[in-house]
C-alpha cells in the first residue's frame, strides 16, 4: 500500500481529487456490503426472537447491562477520538494525529478486553452453545442456546471487525509517524475513520438487541 511518495498520484488517476473521491466512494460501498453481511445475522436474530420472544428475553437478562453500557461508552469515546484524529490530519498536525490514533486504539483495546471478560464469564456459566450448555431455570434449553449462538456470532463477528480495525489503526499510526500524511493528503485516515465509525454503529445496534430487550418487564 505505502508507495514511495504518498502524494504521487497513482497512474490510473488523472487528478488527486479523483483519487480521493474514488477511495472514499469505495469505502462507502464496502460498508454497504458489510451492512448486508451483518444483515444476514440480524435477519436470523429477528426471526428467532419473534418465534421465541420469552426465551430470548430470559436469556438476555443473564447479560450484564452495566458492563454492556460501559463498553458502549468506551466505544463511543473511541469514535470521538477517531474524529479528533481526522481533524488533526486535516490540520496537518502530525503529533496530534498520532496521539489520537493511539488513544483510539487504547479505547478499542479496552472494549475488546471487556468483551473477552464477558465471554469468559459465559464459559464459566455454561452459557456457551454446545453439549455443556445450560441456562438455569429455562425449560427451553435449545431455544436459549439459539440466543447465545446468535450472541456469539454477532459479538464475535463484531470483535473480529474491531481487531481488523486495530490493525488498520496500527498501520495508520506507523505511516503518520513516518510523516506520510499532511493537510493535502490524508485520505487513508479519512477512510479508516469511516470504517471505525461503522464498526461502532454496528455495536449501537447490537447492544440493545442483545442486552436490553427485556429490561422493562419486572420479573
Amino acid at each position: 500500500m505505502a508507495s514511495a511518495n504518498p502524494l504521487a498520484l497513482r497512474e490510473q488517476f488523472d487528478t488527486a481529487a479523483q483519487q480521493k473521491d474514488a477511495s472514499v466512494l469505495a469505502m462507502w460501498i464496502f460498508l454497504v456490503t458489510e451492512i448486508m453481511f451483518f444483515g444476514g445475522l440480524f435477519l436470523a436474530y429477528t426471526a428467532y426472537r419473534s418465534f421465541y420472544p420469552e426465551v430470548f428475553g430470559a436469556a438476555s437478562r443473564t447479560l450484564s447491562a452495566t458492563i454492556g453500557a460501559v463498553n458502549t461508552a468506551v466505544l463511543l469515546t473511541s469514535s470521538y477520538t477517531m474524529v479528533l484524529a481526522v481533524r488533526a490530519a486535516q490540520k496537518g498536525s502530525r503529533k496530534a494525529l498520532i496521539w489520537f490514533l493511539i488513544l483510539t486504539m487504547i479505547f478499542g483495546t479496552v472494549f475488546l478486553g471487556v468483551k473477552a471478560y464477558e465471554w469468559h464469564e459465559k464459559f464459566v456459566e455454561h452459557h456457551v452453545p454446545g453439549p455443556s450448555f445450560h441456562l438455569e431455570g429455562e425449560p427451553l434449553q435449545g431455544q436459549a442456546q439459539l440466543f447465545f449462538s446468535l450472541y456469539f456470532a454477532m459479538t464475535g463477528l463484531h470483535a473480529l471487525h474491531m481487531v481488523v480495525g486495530m490493525g488498520i489503526m496500527t498501520v495508520m499510526t506507523w505511516r503518520a509517524w513516518l510523516g506520510r500524511f499532511n493537510a493535502d493528503y490524508y485520505t487513508p485516515i479519512d477512510v479508516a475513520g469511516l470504517y471505525w465509525h461503522f464498526v461502532d454503529v454496528i455495536w449501537i445496534f447490537l447492544f440493545p438487541l442483545l442486552y436490553l430487550i427485556d429490561r422493562h418487564v419486572p420479573k
Binding site: F51, G130, Q145
Partner: peptide, 14 residues
C-alpha cells in the same frame, strides 16, 4: 462445526 442450532429443528432452529 459447533452445532449451534441455527438451522437445527431439534434446538428450535428453522
Amino acid at each position: 462445526l459447533f452445532h449451534i442450532g441455527i438451522f437445527d429443528p431439534a434446538l428450535g432452529g428453522d
